[in-house]
Design a protein around this nucleic acid. Structure first.
Ligand code: FES
Ligand code: FES
Lengths: 166, 166
DNA sequence: GCAATTAGAACCGGATCGGTTCCATTTCAA
DNA sequence: TTGAAATGGAACCGATCCGGTTCTAATTGC
């Protein structure tokens, strides 16, 4: 199973929340509460996203994070790349890496690049704006989300997402 | 980095080799020698592929494996699914699994399915035949491959593919 | 009956990854 | 000026996953 790391998973959720803010900054703590992602994790993710320049950060008291660009200009591929590193199915496809032992005789080699590009384009074709637009009303009812986040919060450390498959 | 498991990686290599046989069976040992994939690993992969009915197997002396269908009818998606389980970036997209804690308020949810489908289609769009056709002459020179496989074989257990990224 | 071969499971150690913790730095405001 | 509120950054830890091996059973041809 080709799976998305949780970092990226949560990252998308967090960014989606942030997208509704339209450039206004939010503190990490509030974001964590809103998205129900563990605070520590939220912090880590936000830092990574900031370093990747998808977010701008304001330090000090009353600081926070805001989208660095319009949600329309941020793609799912951007997010995944920021959090998980380059999107590539195999390193064989990376022209810089010569470490695949099969290389000299591998017939698949020439195709990896193609496959990788196909996937990358699939991911680059979806913007944060589209993600955020998906459930507009559900989220417009902010109180509900807040309630869940504060009262129904699961114990810190419990996994959000169990991988059922395989 | 979204990465392909080695199982799938090797699987494609092995199947590609097998594709050139046009339905004729090959023994696991010969396949291993030809592809330079560790014999034990080769066996494991072949068993999985057979169970997934991408290969037909013949047991007993002079047994072996052969493609169950024409290379044109086997896609990369088929192979990955056979070896790594269902192709899905997150379990959130799986309608049957309800284990993502963010579910009730997650705005991303509605889009996972879409993303997954895009990727799946990218992978389903490439057939084994196309993979095998990529380097037709390089492989036509079988002796070279054989030489590498028998003499230049790396020590068992040494990794074929080091992940440079991240 | 024996040798060759696949079927299947169990097993192991190392890498990866989700997650936490700690400390340094910046900034605002009382 | 001082302290509280934030982010920056790194180190750390334990559990899980995964690549890889090994062993035994079943099947088949000679
Ligand atoms: S699998 Fe790496 S070069 Fe073919
Ligand atoms: S990330 Fe799982 S439902 Fe949104």
């Amino acid at each position: 199973m080709i799976r998305l790391s949780r970092l990226a998973d949560y990252g998308i959720v967090i960014l989606t929340r942030l997208a509704r803010e339209r450039g206004r900054p939010m503190a990490a703590s509030t974001l964590a509460a809103d998205t129900a992602v563990a605070p520590a994790m939220t912090g880590k993710i936000l830092k990574l996203l900031a370093r990747a320049e998808l977010l701008v950060s304001q330090r000090g008291a009353h600081g926070g994070y805001a989208l660095a660009r319009a949600p329309e200009a941020i793609t799912v591929a951007d997010i995944i790349e920021a959090l998980d590193g380059p999107i590539a199915l195999t390193s064989c496809a990376d022209p810089a890496s010569t470490d695949c032992g099969l290389e000299p005789l591998c017939p698949a080699r020439a195709n990896w690049r193609r496959i990788n590009r196909a996937i990358r384009e699939a991911l680059a074709g979806i913007t944060l704006a589209e993600m955020a637009a998906a459930v507009p009303d559900a989220l417009a009812v902010a109180p509900e989300a807040e309630r869940l986040a504060s009262t129904g919060r699961r114990a810190a450390g419990s996994p959000l997402l169990l991988d059922g498959a395989r």
